[in-house]
Design a binder for these strands. Structure first.
Lengths: 189, 189, 189, 189
DNA sequence: GATGAATGAGGGTTCATTCAT
DNA sequence: AATGAATGAACCCTCATTCAT
């Protein structure tokens, strides 16, 4: 049922989605939908809560640390970009942004599950690197956000606007390499 | 009439806006609205076309170049952030992102009027600086996008998610200074 | 349009009536209904306001006074009963009673247009009769209400419960005569 | 289970009540409700049948006769008014009146349990009084209905319309005394 | 015997759109 | 050129009812 909601919400957005279509997509009756969720808003909320972390957490799984700083940055950067470009990540971003005024709590959830987690992860890692004398950073949080910003360049912007449908490995690498280069020049020892 | 549309679309989004409310806001009848615009989609399109450049072009006006590179970067960076945080800029971004699938042409228009213009401007400036030997940059376009990305950090992300309602001068300066510092360390001579 | 509402409300009651049926009965679309009335409640209110006085005011028109007290009482009594037994009067009574909690204002309107008017009329007339020395009444208002109560006997009660569908002239006369007899014995000089 | 139905029906009326709320109020599942009652109509019917006499029979209990006629009339009159003003009596009256068309049998039940019983009781008593030479009445049934009508004055009407929420002892006494006075003047020896 | 998940028809309401005036 | 009355499809949601467990 949440899967049906996911499909329709992702395709039509919150306002554009109709409970009828969601019910049809889920293979249940409208009545059943309302037996499980108090209304459209609650269904939307449940869907975002479930898929937010599910989708975005792919970003941070299995990130080993025993590598060179550049390697770690590259791997994480690629993940960030891949998630941002994925159909699910894109749909989630669009909907949460569009309905942020109406569902402030969902926006907070999205931020915590996605950007905030990635940034915190990066920040911790930067702290480690500094302690090991491999980076020189004053404000680790801020530097982490900068990496994040550098990754959201070109591809992510254009994808969100529907100007591109995806990106090749080499295009992603180009962005990642550029970001890592800038970062290391700025903060490397 | 487009002013009425602007007010309602910005407040309610595309799906949430109703032709009735727009007509009321504009002080004309629904019939008149339809005499000038074929339908809601076309009205939306006309509104975005007009306000896109109008809002976003504030970003680039009066940007003199006879300063130090840091000064120029700072001024432009502040502009970018201010527009992104402004009510109009935010509303436009949300709507265009949300409806990018349905109105691909509007997304292209938005991109051209906003990010693309800023990036081209930056790119040209970077070319000049390189010619003057004050910067060392291989791919000027890419570097320009990186500046843009570094500016969209922290404040812009949170604003789009409704987590903050604005930012103080000093918060903006913090982001701008951080971005300029990283950029100059990476690309300064 | 109010005529359609009247027909459906009278037949199905407020809760039982549907805007669809009213629209069909009125020969307009549901949309048109909502162009004229903000909602079901307002339509109901408009209908009651219009038909309340329209229906009930038949009760008091053309009541000349230059007769014997008995004659006047009889004529008015017959009117009260006739209205109470009429299809319109009955439907109005049922609906207003049923929805009094939800539409207190309508109940007040109904009371003012119907019972209160009849009672005030009677009270004034009783005052005149006392001044002429033809009746001896302490509390004219109260005596008026008593006449009203005496008229609502047997036929009205049974009609409201659907136990009878109407009454013959002689049945009405029986109630009226009984009421007038009791009243005159109690208050006549 | 009938208690739950009683609470909800009395509060929301027949149309306004929902089987879900009744089940919740009764603390059973909707399925169970349908195991015991064929549907909403039958449940309503069962509720009215049970509570009709239960509520209204308070009217006639403990009415001793060994008093003066005025005393007896007063006691019975007070009872009639009290029941009519009570929350239960009022709710029952409203519902039965509103749904009389749809549930003619219930209206008959209500009439038999309430007004008819009171009237028959009064009629019998009037017969006794006549036999004892303390009253002079031609048509005992009709006179009984007149007493009933005289009691339903002022307070009952206004209560049914929601114009008042109850009445003080003295207000009730006023109505009762007035009714008894009229009746005794009309029919006393 | 009791449950509660499932249904689908219908509820009131909104809305983009049309068209005669 | 401007209007506003009219439409009907679609909206979200509620409900009486059924039935496998």
């Amino acid at each position: 049922m949440l899967d049906g909601a996911a499909a329709v919400f992702a395709r039509d957005g919150y306002e554009g989605a109709s409970m009828s279509r969601i019910a049809a997509e889920a293979g249940v009756s409208k009545g059943t939908l309302y037996n499980y969720f108090a209304g459209k808003a609650e269904l939307f909320s449940a869907y975002v809560h479930r898929d937010c972390s599910r989708t975005i957490s792919l970003m941070l799984d299995d990130l080993a640390r025993d590598e060179t700083p550049e390697c770690t940055l590259r791997r994480l950067g690629r993940r960030i970009i891949e998630v941002s470009l994925s159909a699910e990540g894109l749909a989630m971003y669009r909907m949460v942004i569009a309905e942020a005024e109406k569902f402030p709590e969902l926006a907070a959830t999205f931020y915590a599950a996605g950007p905030a987690r990635a940034i915190r992860h990066l920040s911790d890692w930067i702290g480690d690197m500094c302690a090991q004398g491999r980076l020189r950073v004053d404000d680790a949080d801020f530097a982490a956000e900068q990496i994040f910003g550098l990754m959201q360049t070109r591809l992510c912007i254009q994808r969100r606007l529907g100007l591109i449908d995806g990106a090749s490995e080499s295009e992603i690498d180009r962005v990642v390499d550029g970001a890592v280069t800038v970062f290391m020049r700025a903060y490397g020892v």
